[in-house]
């Protein structure tokens, strides 16, 4: 599989990364070399081997359901660009 320049631009848009044409070209060749690596790995015969969701065959540890956090919003909001009445302010979004 190899990516076209349009694929690269689409991926950049989905990731909210602004790139120009020359950057897209550079990224295209870098990404394609990653795909080459993936192609090499996919050539390995995995018939009969269950897919893994994680590199290690261990399972998630679970937390007891209890409230352990306290309110730190003042500290968090001290580094926020804009805050009002305890709310973080962001440019207007309407859907």
């Amino acid at each position: 599989m190899s990516l076209s320049p349009d694929d690269v631009k689409r991926i950049a848009r989905l990731a909210r990364i602004e790139i120009d044409d020359s950057q897209a070209l550079a990224s295209q060749s870098q990404l394609n070399s990653i795909f080459d690596l993936i192609a090499t790995m996919q050539a390995v015969d995995t018939q009969g081997i269950a897919p893994m969701a994680h590199a290690q065959e261990v399972y998630q540890r679970l937390r007891a359901d209890s409230v352990t956090e306290t309110d730190h919003h003042a500290a968090f909001q001290a580094i926020a660009p804009a805050v009002e009445n305890g709310l973080y302010l962001v440019p207007k979004v309407i859907e």
Binding site: L87, Y88, L89, V90, P91
Partner: peptide, 15 residues
């Protein structure tokens, strides 16, 4: 939650 009502040109975010 996004709160659009009470602000001019900005949106308030409550997490």
């Amino acid at each position: 939650k996004s709160l659009h009502e009470n602000f001019q040109g900005v949106t308030g975010i409550d997490l």
